[in-house]
Simulated assay, not measured.
Amino acid sequence: MFESKRCTIKTFQKSDYVDVKKLYVDREVRKFLGGVRQEGSIEAALREMLHTNDGSFYWAVREKHTDNFIGLVSLDPHHDGTYLEVSYQFLPNWWGKGYATEVVQLVIDYGLNELNLPKIVAETQTANTSSCKLLERLGMELEKTISRFGAEQAIYSITSSN
C-alpha cells in the first residue's frame, strides 16, 4: 500500500471489481483507450489483474478521507516487451484536480527507486493532450510517436538517476 497526500493506493483486490468496472464502461475514460469494453472483456481483464504472474502491479486508488474510488494505476509490461509501462485510468469527476499527478508520480518513484527499474515507459494517444501534459509534468520525455490501435501514440519514458 502507498499513501499520497490525498490518496491511498492499494493492491487491486476482488472487492475492487465493481469500482474498477466503472472505468471500463465510462465513455469519457475510454475515449483514448479503445472505447467502452464489453462485459466478457471486462471480466477477463479484471481476472487477469487479480491473478497476474508476469511482474505486473495493479493498484486501486481511493480518496484518503472518504474512501471514494478514484481510479486504477498500474505498472505492467509494455507492448514492446522491454520495460514496464505506467498506466492510469481515473473517473472523470476526479480529473483536473491533481490526483493523477500525485498518484502517478508515486508509482513512478516506486518503480525507479524500490523496484530498481532502469526505465519506465508510458504510451498514450497524441490526441490525449491532457495525458501527454501529465507525463511531461512528471519528467517523462517523448521518445517517439508510432501508429498503434488505429491512432498515433506517443511513447514517453523516464530513466533512473541511480
Rank of each mutant, 00 (worst) to 15 (best):
S74R: 08
L75E: 12
L75D: 10
D76R: 15
H78M: 04
H78S: 15
H79R: 14
D80A: 14
G81C: 07
Y83H: 09
Y83L: 06
Y83K: 02
L84Q: 01
L84E: 06
S87E: 08
S87V: 04
Y88D: 04
Q89D: 03
P92Y: 12
N93I: 11
W94M: 02
W95I: 00
G96R: 02
K97I: 02
G98S: 04
A100M: 10
T101I: 03
Q105G: 08
Q105K: 13
I108C: 06
I108P: 05
D109Y: 04
D109I: 05
Y110P: 10
Y110A: 10
L112V: 08
L112N: 08
E114W: 09
L115D: 00
N116W: 12
N116Q: 12
K119G: 08
K119F: 07
A122D: 00
E123R: 14
E123I: 15
T124L: 07
Q125K: 07
T126R: 08
T126Y: 01
T126C: 08
A127P: 01
S130A: 15
L134K: 00
L134Q: 04
G139Q: 02
E141G: 11
L142M: 10
L142K: 15
E143W: 03
K144T: 15
K144A: 11
T145E: 14
I146P: 05
I146E: 15
I146G: 05
S147G: 06
R148L: 15
